[in-house]
Design a protein around this nucleic acid. Structure first.
Lengths: 213, 213
DNA sequence: CCGATAATGTACGAACTAGTACGTTCACGG
DNA sequence: CCGTGAACGTACTAGTTCGTACATTATCGG
Protein backbone atom coordinates (compact mmCIF):
# COMPACT_ATOMS: atom_id res chain seq x y z
CA UNK A 1 0.00 0.00 0.00
CA UNK A 2 2.46 2.58 1.16
CA UNK A 3 4.99 3.67 -1.39
CA UNK A 4 7.14 6.16 0.49
CA UNK A 5 9.95 5.97 -2.00
CA UNK A 6 9.82 9.57 -3.15
CA UNK A 7 11.76 11.93 -0.94
CA UNK A 8 9.08 14.58 -1.29
CA UNK A 9 6.44 12.37 0.29
CA UNK A 10 8.40 11.46 3.35
CA UNK A 11 6.19 11.53 6.38
CA UNK A 12 9.05 12.47 8.64
CA UNK A 13 11.11 15.37 7.39
CA UNK A 14 13.35 17.29 9.73
CA UNK A 15 13.88 20.18 7.36
CA UNK A 16 10.27 20.54 6.37
CA UNK A 17 8.99 20.47 9.94
CA UNK A 18 11.53 23.05 11.09
CA UNK A 19 10.79 25.33 8.15
CA UNK A 20 7.06 24.96 8.69
CA UNK A 21 7.32 25.97 12.34
CA UNK A 22 9.59 28.89 11.48
CA UNK A 23 7.24 30.20 8.81
CA UNK A 24 4.19 30.03 11.04
CA UNK A 25 6.09 31.54 13.97
CA UNK A 26 7.28 34.44 11.81
CA UNK A 27 3.72 35.39 10.96
CA UNK A 28 2.53 34.91 14.54
CA UNK A 29 5.31 36.96 16.16
CA UNK A 30 5.07 39.70 13.52
CA UNK A 31 1.34 39.87 14.04
CA UNK A 32 1.05 39.70 17.83
CA UNK A 33 4.45 40.72 19.16
CA UNK A 34 6.71 38.58 21.29
CA UNK A 35 4.59 38.52 24.42
CA UNK A 36 1.32 38.48 22.50
CA UNK A 37 2.28 35.47 20.40
CA UNK A 38 1.10 32.14 21.81
CA UNK A 39 3.11 28.98 21.50
CA UNK A 40 -0.09 26.94 21.42
CA UNK A 41 -1.43 29.09 18.61
CA UNK A 42 1.75 28.68 16.58
CA UNK A 43 1.60 24.94 17.14
CA UNK A 44 -2.04 24.80 16.07
CA UNK A 45 -1.30 26.50 12.75
CA UNK A 46 1.57 24.16 12.14
CA UNK A 47 1.13 20.77 10.52
CA UNK A 48 2.89 19.34 13.56
CA UNK A 49 2.52 19.75 17.33
CA UNK A 50 3.81 21.95 20.11
CA UNK A 51 6.18 19.23 21.19
CA UNK A 52 8.17 19.78 17.99
CA UNK A 53 8.69 23.47 18.73
CA UNK A 54 10.49 22.52 21.91
CA UNK A 55 12.20 19.62 20.17
CA UNK A 56 13.69 21.78 17.44
CA UNK A 57 14.02 25.20 19.02
CA UNK A 58 14.03 24.73 22.77
CA UNK A 59 11.46 27.32 23.77
CA UNK A 60 9.47 30.40 22.86
CA UNK A 61 12.37 32.81 23.18
CA UNK A 62 14.77 30.71 21.14
CA UNK A 63 12.10 30.27 18.49
CA UNK A 64 11.67 34.02 18.35
CA UNK A 65 15.42 34.51 18.00
CA UNK A 66 15.46 31.97 15.17
CA UNK A 67 12.67 33.94 13.48
CA UNK A 68 14.67 37.16 13.84
CA UNK A 69 17.79 35.53 12.46
CA UNK A 70 16.02 34.20 9.42
CA UNK A 71 14.35 37.54 8.76
CA UNK A 72 17.59 39.49 9.01
CA UNK A 73 19.58 37.07 6.92
CA UNK A 74 17.03 37.46 4.13
CA UNK A 75 17.81 41.18 4.16
CA UNK A 76 21.52 40.79 3.75
CA UNK A 77 21.21 40.07 0.08
CA UNK A 78 19.57 43.41 -0.66
CA UNK A 79 22.28 45.99 -0.63
CA UNK A 80 24.60 43.81 -2.67
CA UNK A 81 22.45 44.55 -5.69
CA UNK A 82 23.63 48.14 -5.76
CA UNK A 83 25.54 48.64 -8.97
CA UNK A 84 28.38 50.76 -7.72
CA UNK A 85 30.60 50.46 -10.75
CA UNK A 86 28.56 51.47 -13.74
CA UNK A 87 26.27 54.22 -12.52
CA UNK A 88 27.06 57.81 -11.76
CA UNK A 89 26.68 58.71 -8.06
CA UNK A 90 23.25 60.33 -8.34
CA UNK A 91 21.74 57.47 -10.29
CA UNK A 92 23.31 54.93 -7.98
CA UNK A 93 21.81 56.65 -4.95
CA UNK A 94 18.37 56.93 -6.50
CA UNK A 95 18.61 53.27 -7.32
CA UNK A 96 19.60 52.36 -3.78
CA UNK A 97 16.71 54.41 -2.41
CA UNK A 98 14.23 52.77 -4.78
CA UNK A 99 15.64 49.32 -4.06
CA UNK A 100 15.28 49.85 -0.32
CA UNK A 101 11.80 51.27 -0.80
CA UNK A 102 10.68 48.21 -2.77
CA UNK A 103 12.34 45.83 -0.39
CA UNK A 104 10.66 47.26 2.69
CA UNK A 105 7.28 47.26 1.02
CA UNK A 106 7.76 43.63 0.03
CA UNK A 107 8.64 42.57 3.59
CA UNK A 108 6.16 44.11 6.02
CA UNK A 109 6.68 41.23 8.46
CA UNK A 110 10.34 42.15 8.75
CA UNK A 111 9.52 45.76 9.57
CA UNK A 112 7.10 44.64 12.25
CA UNK A 113 9.65 42.29 13.75
CA UNK A 114 12.16 45.11 13.93
CA UNK A 115 9.60 47.34 15.66
CA UNK A 116 8.80 44.58 18.11
CA UNK A 117 12.45 43.93 18.75
CA UNK A 118 13.00 47.62 19.49
CA UNK A 119 10.17 47.58 22.00
CA UNK A 120 12.20 44.94 23.77
CA UNK A 121 15.37 47.04 23.54
CA UNK A 122 16.89 44.65 21.00
CA UNK A 123 17.64 42.25 23.81
CA UNK A 124 17.04 39.17 21.68
CA UNK A 125 19.06 40.47 18.75
CA UNK A 126 21.91 41.01 21.19
CA UNK A 127 21.79 37.30 22.09
CA UNK A 128 22.12 36.32 18.46
CA UNK A 129 25.26 35.92 16.43
CA UNK A 130 23.88 37.05 13.11
CA UNK A 131 25.06 40.57 13.77
CA UNK A 132 28.54 40.00 12.47
CA UNK A 133 28.63 41.01 8.84
CA UNK A 134 25.22 42.61 8.79
CA UNK A 135 26.42 46.19 8.82
CA UNK A 136 29.00 45.91 6.06
CA UNK A 137 26.89 44.85 3.10
CA UNK A 138 24.42 47.58 3.94
CA UNK A 139 26.95 50.36 3.93
CA UNK A 140 29.86 49.25 1.78
CA UNK A 141 28.45 50.28 -1.57
CA UNK A 142 26.89 53.41 -0.17
CA UNK A 143 30.21 54.67 1.19
CA UNK A 144 31.85 54.17 -2.20
CA UNK A 145 29.13 56.03 -4.06
CA UNK A 146 29.14 58.94 -1.64
CA UNK A 147 32.91 59.25 -1.89
CA UNK A 148 32.73 59.30 -5.69
CA UNK A 149 30.07 62.01 -5.57
CA UNK A 150 32.11 64.02 -3.12
CA UNK A 151 35.27 63.69 -5.19
CA UNK A 152 33.38 64.98 -8.23
CA UNK A 153 32.25 67.98 -6.21
CA UNK A 154 28.61 67.05 -6.62
CA UNK A 155 27.83 65.97 -3.04
CA UNK A 156 28.20 67.97 0.13
CA UNK A 157 31.39 67.34 2.04
CA UNK A 158 29.83 66.30 5.33
CA UNK A 159 27.72 63.50 3.88
CA UNK A 160 27.99 60.45 6.12
CA UNK A 161 27.04 57.00 4.78
CA UNK A 162 25.31 55.98 7.98
CA UNK A 163 23.30 59.20 8.07
CA UNK A 164 22.12 58.69 4.51
CA UNK A 165 21.26 55.11 5.29
CA UNK A 166 19.30 56.33 8.30
CA UNK A 167 17.25 58.80 6.27
CA UNK A 168 16.36 56.19 3.68
CA UNK A 169 15.46 53.64 6.34
CA UNK A 170 13.49 56.15 8.37
CA UNK A 171 11.35 57.07 5.37
CA UNK A 172 10.70 53.48 4.32
CA UNK A 173 10.23 52.08 7.81
CA UNK A 174 7.97 54.88 8.99
CA UNK A 175 5.72 54.46 5.97
CA UNK A 176 5.08 50.85 6.92
CA UNK A 177 5.51 50.73 10.68
CA UNK A 178 3.36 53.74 11.49
CA UNK A 179 0.76 53.46 8.81
CA UNK A 180 -2.05 52.50 11.18
CA UNK A 181 -1.84 55.45 13.55
CA UNK A 182 -1.06 57.74 10.61
CA UNK A 183 -4.16 56.49 8.85
CA UNK A 184 -6.26 56.81 12.00
CA UNK A 185 -5.20 60.41 12.62
CA UNK A 186 -4.74 61.86 9.14
CA UNK A 187 -6.95 59.57 7.12
CA UNK A 188 -4.23 58.90 4.57
CA UNK A 189 -3.20 55.40 3.63
CA UNK A 190 0.55 55.61 3.04
CA UNK A 191 0.41 52.26 1.28
CA UNK A 192 -2.22 53.30 -1.24
CA UNK A 193 -0.94 51.97 -4.59
CA UNK A 194 -2.00 55.23 -6.23
CA UNK A 195 0.54 57.13 -4.14
CA UNK A 196 3.29 54.53 -4.32
CA UNK A 197 5.22 56.02 -7.22
CA UNK A 198 4.96 59.48 -5.68
CA UNK A 199 6.61 58.33 -2.45
CA UNK A 200 9.19 56.29 -4.30
CA UNK A 201 10.26 59.34 -6.30
CA UNK A 202 10.01 61.63 -3.30
CA UNK A 203 12.53 59.56 -1.35
CA UNK A 204 15.04 59.81 -4.20
CA UNK A 205 14.53 63.58 -4.43
CA UNK A 206 14.86 63.94 -0.68
CA UNK A 207 18.23 62.24 -0.59
CA UNK A 208 19.65 63.82 -3.75
CA UNK A 209 18.45 67.33 -2.95
CA UNK A 210 20.04 67.06 0.48
CA UNK A 211 23.35 65.83 -0.94
CA UNK A 212 23.53 68.32 -3.80
CA UNK A 213 22.17 71.43 -2.07
CA UNK B 1 -5.41 63.93 66.38
CA UNK B 2 -6.17 63.90 62.74
CA UNK B 3 -6.30 67.31 61.15
CA UNK B 4 -7.34 66.50 57.58
CA UNK B 5 -8.41 70.05 56.89
CA UNK B 6 -5.87 70.75 54.17
CA UNK B 7 -6.96 69.58 50.74
CA UNK B 8 -3.46 68.41 49.99
CA UNK B 9 -3.44 65.91 52.84
CA UNK B 10 -6.68 64.21 51.98
CA UNK B 11 -6.37 60.48 52.39
CA UNK B 12 -8.97 59.80 49.73
CA UNK B 13 -8.43 61.72 46.56
CA UNK B 14 -10.14 60.69 43.37
CA UNK B 15 -7.95 62.84 41.15
CA UNK B 16 -4.71 61.89 42.75
CA UNK B 17 -5.42 58.16 42.67
CA UNK B 18 -6.48 58.28 39.04
CA UNK B 19 -3.46 60.33 38.03
CA UNK B 20 -1.14 58.03 39.96
CA UNK B 21 -2.48 54.94 38.23
CA UNK B 22 -2.29 56.62 34.83
CA UNK B 23 1.31 57.72 35.32
CA UNK B 24 2.45 54.28 36.43
CA UNK B 25 0.48 52.58 33.65
CA UNK B 26 2.02 54.86 31.03
CA UNK B 27 5.52 53.80 32.02
CA UNK B 28 4.55 50.15 32.26
CA UNK B 29 2.78 49.99 28.87
CA UNK B 30 5.50 52.02 27.15
CA UNK B 31 8.11 49.71 28.61
CA UNK B 32 6.53 46.29 28.12
CA UNK B 33 3.93 46.74 25.41
CA UNK B 34 0.23 46.13 25.79
CA UNK B 35 0.36 42.35 26.17
CA UNK B 36 3.62 42.42 28.09
CA UNK B 37 2.36 44.90 30.69
CA UNK B 38 0.94 43.29 33.82
CA UNK B 39 -1.99 44.72 35.70
CA UNK B 40 -0.63 43.36 38.96
CA UNK B 41 2.71 44.99 38.29
CA UNK B 42 1.09 48.35 37.59
CA UNK B 43 -0.93 48.02 40.79
CA UNK B 44 2.16 47.16 42.80
CA UNK B 45 3.96 50.32 41.67
CA UNK B 46 0.96 52.41 42.50
CA UNK B 47 0.31 53.81 45.93
CA UNK B 48 -3.09 52.12 45.75
CA UNK B 49 -4.32 48.65 44.82
CA UNK B 50 -5.41 46.75 41.73
CA UNK B 51 -9.00 47.12 42.77
CA UNK B 52 -8.76 50.83 41.99
CA UNK B 53 -7.63 50.21 38.44
CA UNK B 54 -10.88 48.40 37.81
CA UNK B 55 -12.83 50.91 39.85
CA UNK B 56 -11.61 53.90 37.84
CA UNK B 57 -10.83 52.47 34.42
CA UNK B 58 -12.75 49.24 34.08
CA UNK B 59 -10.00 46.96 32.86
CA UNK B 60 -6.59 46.58 31.29
CA UNK B 61 -7.69 47.59 27.81
CA UNK B 62 -9.58 50.68 28.92
CA UNK B 63 -6.62 51.69 31.07
CA UNK B 64 -4.38 51.37 28.04
CA UNK B 65 -6.75 53.50 25.97
CA UNK B 66 -6.76 56.12 28.73
CA UNK B 67 -2.97 56.10 28.65
CA UNK B 68 -3.00 56.60 24.88
CA UNK B 69 -5.50 59.43 25.14
CA UNK B 70 -3.48 61.27 27.74
CA UNK B 71 -0.28 60.82 25.77
CA UNK B 72 -1.83 62.11 22.55
CA UNK B 73 -3.56 65.05 24.16
CA UNK B 74 -0.21 66.16 25.59
CA UNK B 75 1.06 66.33 22.03
CA UNK B 76 -1.69 68.54 20.73
CA UNK B 77 -0.14 71.62 22.20
CA UNK B 78 3.07 71.25 20.21
CA UNK B 79 2.34 72.42 16.73
CA UNK B 80 0.44 75.47 17.96
CA UNK B 81 3.79 76.98 18.92
CA UNK B 82 4.72 77.41 15.29
CA UNK B 83 5.01 81.13 14.63
CA UNK B 84 3.39 81.32 11.26
CA UNK B 85 2.98 85.06 11.14
CA UNK B 86 6.35 86.60 11.79
CA UNK B 87 8.85 84.24 10.21
CA UNK B 88 9.70 83.79 6.58
CA UNK B 89 8.75 80.34 5.23
CA UNK B 90 12.20 78.79 5.44
CA UNK B 91 12.80 79.89 9.01
CA UNK B 92 9.33 78.81 10.03
CA UNK B 93 9.92 75.34 8.62
CA UNK B 94 13.30 74.97 10.23
CA UNK B 95 11.71 76.02 13.47
CA UNK B 96 8.92 73.48 13.09
CA UNK B 97 11.44 70.74 12.35
CA UNK B 98 13.55 71.67 15.37
CA UNK B 99 10.47 71.93 17.57
CA UNK B 100 9.29 68.49 16.52
CA UNK B 101 12.78 67.11 16.97
CA UNK B 102 13.00 68.42 20.52
CA UNK B 103 9.51 67.31 21.35
CA UNK B 104 10.05 63.73 20.25
CA UNK B 105 13.31 63.51 22.13
CA UNK B 106 11.61 64.82 25.24
CA UNK B 107 8.81 62.24 25.06
CA UNK B 108 10.30 58.80 24.36
CA UNK B 109 7.38 57.11 26.13
CA UNK B 110 4.99 58.60 23.61
CA UNK B 111 7.02 57.29 20.68
CA UNK B 112 7.05 53.83 22.20
CA UNK B 113 3.31 53.91 22.78
CA UNK B 114 2.77 54.84 19.14
CA UNK B 115 4.99 51.96 18.02
CA UNK B 116 3.11 49.58 20.28
CA UNK B 117 -0.22 50.85 19.06
CA UNK B 118 0.87 50.28 15.47
CA UNK B 119 1.81 46.71 16.26
CA UNK B 120 -1.80 46.32 17.28
CA UNK B 121 -3.00 47.96 14.06
CA UNK B 122 -4.17 51.07 15.95
CA UNK B 123 -7.19 49.12 17.10
CA UNK B 124 -7.32 50.86 20.47
CA UNK B 125 -6.83 54.32 19.02
CA UNK B 126 -9.78 53.58 16.75
CA UNK B 127 -11.94 52.95 19.81
CA UNK B 128 -11.04 56.30 21.27
CA UNK B 129 -12.63 59.65 20.60
CA UNK B 130 -9.52 61.76 20.92
CA UNK B 131 -8.97 61.58 17.18
CA UNK B 132 -11.22 64.50 16.37
CA UNK B 133 -9.13 67.64 16.25
CA UNK B 134 -5.79 65.88 16.43
CA UNK B 135 -4.92 66.26 12.77
CA UNK B 136 -5.72 69.94 12.41
CA UNK B 137 -3.31 71.52 14.91
CA UNK B 138 -0.52 69.41 13.46
CA UNK B 139 -1.03 70.54 9.90
CA UNK B 140 -2.77 73.90 9.98
CA UNK B 141 0.31 76.05 10.41
CA UNK B 142 2.38 73.90 8.12
CA UNK B 143 -0.07 74.28 5.25
CA UNK B 144 0.00 78.07 5.61
CA UNK B 145 3.79 78.23 5.63
CA UNK B 146 4.11 75.96 2.61
CA UNK B 147 1.59 78.03 0.67
CA UNK B 148 3.47 81.24 1.46
CA UNK B 149 6.72 79.67 0.32
CA UNK B 150 5.09 78.43 -2.86
CA UNK B 151 3.53 81.81 -3.60
CA UNK B 152 6.94 83.44 -3.22
CA UNK B 153 8.35 80.97 -5.72
CA UNK B 154 10.76 79.56 -3.17
CA UNK B 155 9.19 76.15 -2.60
CA UNK B 156 8.49 73.46 -5.15
CA UNK B 157 4.93 73.41 -6.45
CA UNK B 158 4.07 69.85 -5.49
CA UNK B 159 4.90 70.23 -1.81
CA UNK B 160 2.19 68.59 0.26
CA UNK B 161 1.79 69.48 3.96
CA UNK B 162 1.11 65.89 4.98
CA UNK B 163 4.17 64.64 3.07
CA UNK B 164 6.41 67.17 4.77
CA UNK B 165 4.92 66.27 8.12
CA UNK B 166 5.59 62.63 7.33
CA UNK B 167 9.26 63.23 6.53
CA UNK B 168 9.81 65.19 9.73
CA UNK B 169 8.00 62.59 11.81
CA UNK B 170 9.78 59.71 10.10
CA UNK B 171 13.18 61.20 10.90
CA UNK B 172 12.38 61.99 14.52
CA UNK B 173 10.44 58.81 15.24
CA UNK B 174 12.96 56.50 13.60
CA UNK B 175 15.78 58.02 15.61
CA UNK B 176 14.04 57.09 18.84
CA UNK B 177 11.94 54.05 17.98
CA UNK B 178 14.66 52.11 16.18
CA UNK B 179 17.66 53.16 18.15
CA UNK B 180 18.20 49.77 19.77
CA UNK B 181 18.42 47.65 16.62
CA UNK B 182 20.32 50.46 14.90
CA UNK B 183 22.79 50.52 17.74
CA UNK B 184 23.07 46.74 17.77
CA UNK B 185 23.77 46.53 14.04
CA UNK B 186 25.74 49.69 13.27
CA UNK B 187 27.15 50.48 16.69
CA UNK B 188 25.99 54.07 16.56
CA UNK B 189 23.91 55.58 19.32
CA UNK B 190 21.51 57.93 17.55
CA UNK B 191 20.76 59.59 20.88
CA UNK B 192 24.37 60.42 21.70
CA UNK B 193 24.27 64.03 22.93
CA UNK B 194 27.43 64.73 20.92
CA UNK B 195 25.53 64.09 17.70
CA UNK B 196 22.29 65.75 18.73
CA UNK B 197 22.93 69.13 17.15
CA UNK B 198 24.14 67.47 13.96
CA UNK B 199 20.87 65.55 13.55
CA UNK B 200 18.80 68.56 14.50
CA UNK B 201 20.42 70.65 11.79
CA UNK B 202 20.37 67.80 9.32
CA UNK B 203 16.60 67.47 9.57
CA UNK B 204 16.14 71.16 8.78
CA UNK B 205 18.50 70.90 5.80
CA UNK B 206 16.74 67.78 4.59
CA UNK B 207 13.35 69.48 4.50
CA UNK B 208 14.51 72.83 3.14
CA UNK B 209 16.77 71.33 0.47
CA UNK B 210 13.90 69.17 -0.73
CA UNK B 211 11.48 72.09 -0.87
CA UNK B 212 13.89 74.53 -2.54
CA UNK B 213 15.62 72.18 -4.96
C1' DC C 1 -23.49 63.42 64.95
C1' DC C 2 -25.16 60.01 61.80
C1' DG C 3 -26.52 57.59 57.81
C1' DA C 4 -25.57 57.14 52.91
C1' DT C 5 -22.38 56.67 49.49
C1' DA C 6 -17.99 57.16 47.42
C1' DA C 7 -13.54 55.25 47.80
C1' DT C 8 -10.49 51.64 49.13
C1' DG C 9 -8.47 47.00 50.63
C1' DT C 10 -8.27 41.68 50.77
C1' DA C 11 -8.70 37.35 49.26
C1' DC C 12 -9.84 34.48 45.86
C1' DG C 13 -11.12 32.03 41.37
C1' DA C 14 -11.39 30.75 36.53
C1' DA C 15 -8.90 30.69 32.50
C1' DC C 16 -4.85 30.71 30.20
C1' DT C 17 0.08 29.54 28.99
C1' DA C 18 4.77 27.89 28.78
C1' DG C 19 6.84 23.90 29.31
C1' DT C 20 7.33 18.63 30.14
C1' DA C 21 6.76 13.50 31.28
C1' DC C 22 5.79 9.74 28.93
C1' DG C 23 4.40 6.89 25.24
C1' DT C 24 4.42 5.84 20.12
C1' DT C 25 5.85 5.36 15.28
C1' DC C 26 8.85 5.59 11.54
C1' DA C 27 13.39 5.02 9.05
C1' DC C 28 17.69 3.24 8.38
C1' DG C 29 21.92 0.49 9.17
C1' DG C 30 23.62 -3.97 9.92
C1' DC D 1 14.19 -8.33 8.99
C1' DC D 2 14.98 -6.31 13.21
C1' DG D 3 16.78 -3.29 16.76
C1' DT D 4 17.98 1.38 17.81
C1' DG D 5 17.48 6.02 17.81
C1' DA D 6 15.42 10.00 15.70
C1' DA D 7 11.04 12.17 14.98
C1' DC D 8 6.58 12.79 16.59
C1' DG D 9 1.94 12.88 19.52
C1' DT D 10 -0.93 13.18 23.92
C1' DA D 11 -2.00 14.53 28.17
C1' DC D 12 -0.82 16.85 31.85
C1' DT D 13 1.15 20.37 35.40
C1' DA D 14 2.83 24.34 37.74
C1' DG D 15 2.63 28.94 37.61
C1' DT D 16 0.70 33.10 36.04
C1' DT D 17 -2.77 36.74 35.04
C1' DC D 18 -7.00 39.18 34.52
C1' DG D 19 -10.82 40.03 36.87
C1' DT D 20 -14.25 40.05 40.92
C1' DA D 21 -16.97 39.02 45.29
C1' DC D 22 -16.98 40.72 49.58
C1' DA D 23 -15.55 43.45 53.46
C1' DT D 24 -14.11 48.01 55.18
C1' DT D 25 -13.22 52.89 55.89
C1' DA D 26 -13.57 57.69 55.03
C1' DT D 27 -16.23 61.77 53.81
C1' DC D 28 -19.99 64.81 53.39
C1' DG D 29 -24.79 66.46 53.48
C1' DG D 30 -28.47 67.11 56.56
Amino acid sequence: MAAPASEAERQRDKERTRADILAVATREFADKGYTGARVDEIAARTSTTKRMIYYYFGGKEQLYIAVLEQAYSAIRTLERQLDVEHLDPEDALRRLAALTFDHHEAHPDFIRLVSIENIHHAQHLAQSEILAGLADPALGGLAVVLERGRAAGRFRADADPLDIHMVISAFCVFRLANRHTFQAIFGRDMLDPARREHYRTMLGDLVIDYLTA
